[in-house]
């Protein structure tokens, strides 16, 4: 302080320059370290996962067994039609794919005993009215090899998929119980 007082009138610039530098340093340093943060949220709502249940098997013995050399067709709107129930959330679009067998196999009739089966472009149907009975449901007939996008109806949780088909036992077909798997894969379209 004594030095500054002594400098009055002779070296005023030293004092003022020093003050300016100090103030600038304080402000600059303060600015360099000041920061601000904001926290926001990432949000999303996951819909109910899809589930698939077999309502009933596609049954060529419905109304009577198969006979050797006699083809039999099960229509999609009859009691023997297969039924899958896909459960999801209302108004959501669901895509599905059927993996269809070419043969029914018999485990008890001997090696390589099989019945040819085939499915036409009208052998599948679906309903969105919640009715899983193929004889009463309001069906939309579709190609089982090219299922369309299905939408769960408002107020419902289920889409029912029905499957018919034709079995062609040979003239010398061995007696027995013949089975095969039909695989339905369903997934959300996601929009």
């Amino acid at each position: 302080m004594k030095t500054i007082m002594d400098c009055k009138g002779r070296h005023p610039s030293i004092l003022w320059t020093a003050i300016a530098v100090v103030v600038m340093l304080v402000v600059t340093v303060g600015g360099a370290f000041a920061n601000d943060q904001f926290v926001m949220t990432a949000t999303g709502t996951v819909r109910a996962a899809l589930s698939i249940a077999q309502g009933q098997a596609l049954n060529w013995s419905q109304g009577g067994d198969l006979y050797m050399g006699v083809s039999k067709h099960i229509a999609v709107n009859t009691a023997g039609a297969g039924v899958f129930t896909v459960t999801g959330a209302a108004a959501d679009n669901i895509q599905s794919q059927l993996l269809l067998p070419e043969y029914l196999w018999c485990a008890t009739a001997g090696v390589k005993q099989r019945v040819d089966v085939y499915f036409t472009a009208t052998d599948a149907a679906y309903s969105t009215d919640g009715d899983a009975d193929p004889t009463t449901a309001t069906q939309t007939v579709v190609d089982p090899t090219n299922l369309p996008t299905m939408t769960v109806a408002a107020g419902q949780t289920d889409v029912n998929i029905f499957l018919g088909g034709t079995a062609m036992p040979s003239a010398n077909q061995k007696a027995g119980v013949y089975t095969a798997s039909v695989v339905l894969t369903s997934w959300y379209e996601g929009d």
Binding site: G44, V46, A49, W187, Y188
Partner: peptide
């Protein structure tokens, strides 16, 4: 993210 569908 809005509505999210399992597996999508």
């Amino acid at each position: 993210f809005g509505d999210i569908f399992p597996g999508v």
